[in-house]
């Protein structure tokens, strides 16, 4: 019970901090959401390659994997894993393989939802 509580609390704090960094970037640099997302996913790849992000995942769990930096982490981790298994080819197969579920879900559910619902103006 205690373990579960700690894991959720550390996910909350880790994820919160990562999002707060994003907010600072938006307010201070006028980066658009598209640029923030690109920056975060790329940073995730780089930090994973440098061995830093794994430690963050060990501490924060979903707090580190749910933000888009975590998407970069999965991409890089998958690439490394496949490189170990298949050599250079792995650099091209590993990333997408590891994130295939998320990407496919986004495309499929995205399509369903956009066909089923209509946009409404904020009033």
């Amino acid at each position: 019970m205690n373990n579960i509580f700690v894991s959720i609390l550390s996910a909350f704090i880790t994820g919160g901090i990562i999002c707060a960094i994003g907010q600072i970037l938006i307010d201070r640099t006028k980066l658009t959401p598209a640029r923030i997302l690109v920056l975060f996913v790329t940073s995730g790849v780089v930090l994973t390659a440098l061995g830093i992000y794994q430690r963050l995942v060990d501490i924060g769990g979903a707090g580190a994997t749910v933000p888009l930096t975590g998407f970069g982490y999965s991409l890089a981790k998958g690439a490394f894993k496949d490189v170990e298994q298949y050599g250079l080819l792995g650099a091209f197969t590993g990333g997408v393989k590891a994130t295939a579920g998320g990407i496919t879900a986004a495309v499929f559910f995205g399509y369903l939802v956009s066909v089923a619902f209509k946009p409404k103006p904020k009033s």
Partner: peptide
């Protein structure tokens, strides 16, 4: 951002 981001991640956990 901290609160909402944190809540979404905690939900993920």
């Amino acid at each position: 951002a901290f609160l909402v981001g944190g809540v979404i991640c905690a939900g993920g956990q």
